[in-house]
Design a protein around this nucleic acid. Structure first.
Length: 289
DNA sequence: AGTTGTCAAGCTAGT
DNA sequence: ACTAGCTTGACAACT
């Protein structure tokens, strides 16, 4: 089992998600930011190697405006060597890598334009992983999307639009159960139609489920991952006490986490700790394993 | 130096 | 009707 945290390290004093304003867009600034982000990503990975945190989610802000029409700069070619070098480091140290496009990426949208932008964004995410020369076990995870007041139609729209995606995206795309619209059961229904792996989100499953037992659900999710996909990915978080449903806790609840590990014992998976304080909680959690 | 309104993009439930 | 929350704050203008 590999343990990790998403996107940013709060200890090392840099962020791999530096950006700038669209209004001040220039190729010069873009190059600067990408360079800074790649350098910081490398630093972050080095921290993680030292601490044996070998599951990492690369943030979507690595290349600002990558899928925006304003960006005609061929950053893929310009930074090819940087990406490759980071990829080498990732492979050498046995990292598991994921990415998670943001909430605007909806392949089941009612609007063609939203789908079009989403596909561009998915292509960008896959470009990053391809430039690092990572295998198919490096995944890009999204949610099923919106309900648009007709869940069945929205599920079917996901499937139909998925079928039209290019191979580059299909190789990496996986879905995750969410906390208010599409449960694990809905994801399984999709999986049966198009064979897409499912990331099991423990916290979302707590928020929205169909009374499935957690251990059985983890095992069921694991079955949706083929050998080429790598081992099952699990997302883990705790409800922030006193906040509205779905908000993530600042610090990990180790007692609950221990309980989950006990429930899921002897099942192999990589686990992403979506806790606000990032590596701090991950460092506490890894001591338990 | 520190604070605060704003920033490419969508959707939903809670308030 | 509005906004917090989501995988994730950072930028930039102002005090």
């Amino acid at each position: 089992m590999k343990i990790g945290y998403p996107c940013i390290n709060r200890t090392i004093g840099c962020t791999p998600n530096k950006t700038f304003r669209l209004a001040s867009y220039s190729e010069k600034i873009l190059k600067e930011k990408i360079k800074q982000n790649l350098d910081c990503l490398k630093k972050t990975l080095e921290f993680n190697v030292k601490n044996n945190l070998l599951f990492f989610r690369i943030g979507s802000g690595l290349v600002p405006f990558a899928s925006h029409p304003i960006c005609i700069f061929n950053w893929q070619r310009y930074f090819k060597k940087y990406f490759l070098e980071i990829g080498e480091y990732i492979k050498k140290n046995g990292f598991r890598i994921s990415m998670h496009p943001d909430q605007f990426v909806l392949i089941n949208s009612l609007k063609r334009d939203v789908i079009k932008k989403s596909i561009k964004e998915l292509n960008y995410h896959c470009d990053v992983l391809n430039l690092m020369d990572l295998d198919e076990s490096a995944k890009v995870q999204i949610h099923v999307g919106g309900v648009y007041k007709n869940k069945n139609a929205s599920l079917n729209r996901f499937i139909n639009n998925y079928k039209r995606l290019n191979k580059k995206i299909k190789k990496r795309l996986v879905i995750e159960n969410d906390h208010m619209n599409f449960s694990f059961k809905d994801c399984l229904w999709i999986n049966k139609k198009i064979d897409i792996p499912i990331v099991f989100d423990v916290f979302h499953h707590e928020c929205l489920n169909n009374n499935e037992k957690v251990r059985e659900t983890v095992i069921r999710a694991k079955k949706t991952w083929k050998k080429k996909d790598g081992v099952l990915m699990v997302d883990y978080s705790n409800q922030k006490v006193g906040a509205r449903k779905g908000s993530h806790e600042e610090n990990i609840n180790l007692k609950k986490f221990k309980k989950f590990l006990r429930i899921a014992r002897n099942i192999d998976f990589d686990i992403m700790l979506e806790i606000k304080d990032k590596e701090k909680s991950a460092l506490k959690a890894i001591k338990l394993t």
